[in-house]
């Protein structure tokens, strides 16, 4: 699931390191949809998600010299965004935003599929983060483990537990 950055990626990183915003935007273009979705599902509101992603972008651009390989850009960005989400959820400052129902429906199309979202939000923050990384980020458990600084087997077992929980909540057909 590594959709971005092949050979040209390294060149873009090099240019971004030199302060080329266009190159950075190009790198960003390949991942921002998933990045924002990830932040949105973590933060559960558009404002925080927007803030987290834009802060992550700024931080990433500043620290792009830390990035050695273009192939790591995606997971690096997800790391920064997931740290930003964690931080913001912890800080409580902006995490308690309430949204109008209409806002939500508009943003989420909350007509049909909201059960999945409900189930998703019944997970703990950590479980949600793991599930989102695996499902949305398209990572395998080793990569998620690297991003979340967790043992991949732990990731796998937590993911299993989380999906199991969701399955029960969603009332999927199938034996237990």
């Amino acid at each position: 699931m590594h959709t971005c950055e092949k050979n040209t990626g390294d060149e873009l990183v090099k240019r971004a390191r030199g302060g080329d915003t266009k190159a950075f935007a190009k790198l960003y273009e390949g991942i921002y949809v998933d990045l924002y979705r990830f932040a949105f599902y973590m933060m559960r509101n558009a404002h925080d998600a927007e803030d987290v992603v834009s802060e992550a972008v700024i931080s990433a651009f500043e620290h792009i010299s830390n990035l050695k390989k273009a192939s790591a850009f995606r997971s690096w960005m997800f790391t920064i965004v997931s740290n930003g989400c964690k931080k913001r959820l912890l800080s409580k400052e902006c995490s308690q935003v309430e949204l109008k129902e209409t806002d939500l429906s508009a943003e989420l199309n909350l007509e049909e599929e909201h059960d999945v979202h409900k189930a998703l939000w019944s997970l703990t923050q950590e479980e949600r983060m793991i599930v989102l990384m695996l499902v949305l980020g398209g990572y395998n458990s080793r990569e998620v483990g690297e991003i979340l600084e967790m043992n991949p087997i732990t990731v796998r077992s937590k993911q299993k537990r989380a999906l199991e929980k969701m399955r029960l909540l969603l009332g999927e057909e199938g034996g237990v």
């Binding site: 273009e29 921002y32 924002y36 927007e50 834009s54 508009a106 943003e107 989420l108 979202h117």
Partner: peptide, 11 residues
């Protein structure tokens, strides 16, 4: 799921 991405985050 349709999630509108804020304009400010467009590349």
């Amino acid at each position: 799921a349709y999630i509108e991405i804020p304009d400010s985050l467009k590349p």
